[in-house]
Simulated assay, not measured.
Amino acid sequence: MLLCVIAIGASAKGFGLPAKTSNTKVILNGGQRVTFARPDGYFAFHNVPAGTHLIEVSSVGYFFSPVRVDISARNPGYIQAALTETRRVLNELVLEPLKEEQYYEIREPFSIMSLLKSPMGLMVGFMVIMVFVMPKMMENIDPEEMRQAQEQMRNSPVSFSGLLARAQS
């Protein structure tokens, strides 16, 4: 026979747990028995046989470590509890939430660098640079050379197959 009384709300003040614990469900052995915490944070399981049992706490917004409870068959009333994750033995059966659960991803604040690093930002940046840099590059070319290059391009027909043949040779 086991009467577990575990305080949930009293020890979790640092996490800002609400005063109401009506949404806190306590599960024994994966659903074999289920109870809800009272408004003061306590709960109880009655007539639990001797052996090893697992107590899990389910509370909206908080994550609790499961507790392994060993009930002695030789010494009636002797109960030993330990956290399953850290294997720390609990002298008092008081559970504290390990962390607050984050259900939503926190949005990053606006940043000019994230805008510039995006593919669209990179394309716009490249085009702006080309608009301002290309005219400066074209100023350095001799006008006579430019005219000759344009005439040569007009006179020789350019085809895709011709470009491929030149690239391979």
Rank of each mutant, 00 (worst) to 15 (best):
I6G: 07
S11I: 03
P18D: 11
K20E: 13
N23T: 10
N23A: 13
N29S: 07
V34R: 03
V34T: 15
V34A: 01
T35G: 03
F36W: 12
A37F: 11
D40T: 02
Y42R: 03
Y42H: 09
H46P: 00
N47D: 11
P49H: 05
A50R: 05
G51L: 05
H53R: 01
S59Y: 02
I71R: 08
R74L: 15
R74I: 13
N75Y: 11
N75M: 14
N75A: 13
Y78W: 02
Y78E: 11
Q80V: 13
V89H: 00
V89W: 01
N91P: 04
E92F: 11
L93G: 03
P97F: 04
L98M: 09
K99F: 14
E100V: 15
Y104W: 08
I106E: 09
R107L: 14
E108A: 10
E108M: 06
P109H: 08
I112G: 00
L116C: 09
P119E: 08
M120V: 09
L122G: 05
V124D: 03
G125L: 11
V128D: 00
P135M: 09
P135T: 12
M137S: 09
E145M: 14
Q148L: 15
Q148Y: 11
Q150E: 11
Q152I: 04
M153R: 13
M153Q: 13
R154A: 11
N155E: 14
N155A: 14
V158P: 02
S159D: 15
F160K: 07
S161M: 13
L163W: 11
R166S: 10
A167V: 07
S169M: 12
